[in-house]
Design a protein around this nucleic acid. Structure first.
Lengths: 340, 340
DNA sequence: GAAATTCCCGAAATCCCTTTCGGGAAGCTA
DNA sequence: TAGCTTCCCGAAAGGGATTTCGGGAATTTC
């Protein structure tokens, strides 16, 4: 066990005493500011090193008026979409000398308020609010004294700046790819219809189909974002519409289930039936037989951008407002195109 | 966009001026300390509310000598084991008025040192180091001025306190369950043999088998922690040893692959063949057909315990040292016991 | 050798809050 | 009314680092 007894961290005055200079001189020597004789500077640096001095960021922040910290307020860490966003943000901040306070509200508005207050009392320079769905969420309000950026789940107040993945384009991309593969009889299996993500993807898909004079085969099927549902729904689709030659699935989990049912029913993927997923969750998409073509929402990128916006706002740059839809990308694998 | 221009956060002196009292009185009124006349207190609180005053945690920390912050130094956020640990820790700390600095070293020792320095300059009260494997990792050293607890990946220095899941017991639990189900011809498919986790689980399994006068059927099979490998390995096992009646898999991914192969080869699970996974990764274990029996390492609990240890150390309680193996638990599902 | 620069360094204010300690005003007793 | 207690409140120190500004010493110039 590391003992902290007595081993109080060294302060600037300790260093100054050790180097036999004033506190002011020590500060200037260490930060390379002001006029300090080279010999004096060397002496101070040596002393600082000997005492393994690290400046107290709090005292510094007190003076500077900014802390070099940012709050990351997530609504639910469990969510699979949080992590890449969080990574992207931590990544961007870490490179810029900024440290991140992580707060998990666990989907509870009370806890969120509590954490928000804590972050403000810590005088974070900015806040990123990460939600677990792309449905709008209540704004934190306009009277927050630091910039706020909403990631993944947009704020319901257009005066806030929100960054969300472009599900509409995602749906379009998926369908356009299937059309390019020569498929025309395309079914759609998705998750909970209450999710904006489900509706947006469907809308994009319909737009792409419409442009080709087509529509979804049968009714789009909604229920839950699970592998089980994917299996059941795919079985139903293939029974009711045996001539379907492609299924656009609302998530990779659903697609995995669909793949399973297709195999059970003797359809070869992708020859008889193309299947495309969504989210590009690699654990699922790269381990199936065949591997899943999917839509990737570039979440890490989204996290990085959110961080960049906060940076900009801190630097006084106007970051604008409204909900920005960030581009998604198609990742082609074996479930839509047979490798030769 | 929330504007922060000019809207500097209110300070205690602002409140004091507003309430026409001294700063000292305002402080006492707000913190409920000292003797303040009820009327005065009310006036101060009203002023604080009007200015939406939140005390500056930095100034507070400067005085108190502790910051109420803790560093969470992860080696790789991507890792699937990080998240539950992180959740558990954040959970425990959040309840105790402590905020968490999240740092992701992305598996890079240089970056880790960099983040460590940043955490120390922020004067965190303690640090939790979370690794992605259960193999020992280099210690941060003994000269850190705050308590350090290692979670999941233990420190290679026995003077440090480490908390890791008990893989040996996990292996034993898995086998004992299979034995209790009447299985005796048990094969083992695991991941990368260089992982301590793989070896420990196997050792536990062998101990349990040995106690029953049995051993693994064939050689334990090692390669990688993937579904693909699980499929291939299971196919080989079932061909070489057709009389195998159970497979203990080193991860749920491997188990999913094994399930797939079993189905392909016409073995009924669990009637002909029982399959047990490891990690209880619910996305995988509850979505398979049948659902996977698995070993759960109680990672959230581990995170909470790590946080508790840090709390204790901060309070001056000796938290001891060495590597502590935390209990795991068996989660029984359909892949080992047929539901009636 | 006296005056004018140049060059370094240090005293002190500042950031915001907490805490100690002392003193002023009121109320009470004799 | 004098003296004492009680009750509140305020002045000031302190915590660690930064920055401004002024002054002392060394150096240069005439």
């Amino acid at each position: 066990m590391p003992s902290d007894s007595g081993a109080r961290a060294a302060t600037l005055s300790d260093v100054a005493r050790e180097a036999a200079v004033s506190i002011a001189t020590a500060s200037k020597a260490i930060n390379g500011r002001g006029d300090v004789a080279p010999a004096t500077r060397a002496r101070v640096l040596a002393a600082a090193d000997a005492l393994s001095f690290t400046p107290n960021a709090m005292a510094r922040g007190l003076l500077a008026g900014r802390t070099g910290t940012v709050g990351l307020l997530t609504s639910d860490l469990e969510g699979r979409f949080m992590i890449p966003i969080l990574m992207g943000a931590e990544d961007a901040f870490g490179a810029g000398q900024v440290n991140v306070f992580l707060c998990d509200a666990r989907g509870d508005a009370i806890r969120e308020q509590y954490h928000l207050k804590a972050l403000l009392s810590r005088r974070v320079d900015g806040i990123i609010v990460v939600g677990r769905q792309t449905d709008p969420r209540p704004s934190l309000g306009q009277d927050i004294p630091v910039p706020v950026v909403y990631a993944y789940a947009p704020s319901d107040d257009p005066r806030d700046l929100s960054l969300t993945p472009d599900n509409y384009s995602g749906g379009r991309l998926a369908i356009e790819h299937l059309l390019a593969c020569g498929r025309t009889r395309i079914a759609h299996i998705s998750g909970d219809p209450a999710y904006a993500a489900a509706q947006d993807r469907l809308a994009g898909a319909r737009a792409a189909l419409g442009a080709a004079g087509l529509d979804i085969v049968g009714e789009p099927m909604f229920s839950e974002w699970s592998e089980h549902w994917g299996r059941d729904a795919a079985a139903m689709v293939l029974e009711r519409h045996p001539d379907v030659d492609a299924i656009f699935c609302g998530s990779d989990q659903i697609a995995r289930g669909a793949l399973d049912s297709a195999r059970d029913l003797g359809r070869r993927v992708p020859d008889d039936l193309a299947i495309i997923g969504y989210d590009n969750w690699e654990i699922l998409s790269t381990n199936s037989r065949p591997q899943l073509t999917s839509i990737d929402a570039n979440l890490k990128q989204l996290g990085r951008q959110a961080a960049q916006r906060v940076f900009d706002a801190i630097d006084g740059i106007d970051i604008g407002d409204g909900n920005h839809h960030l581009p998604v990308r198609l990742v082609i694998r074996g479930s839509t195109i047979s490798r030769r």
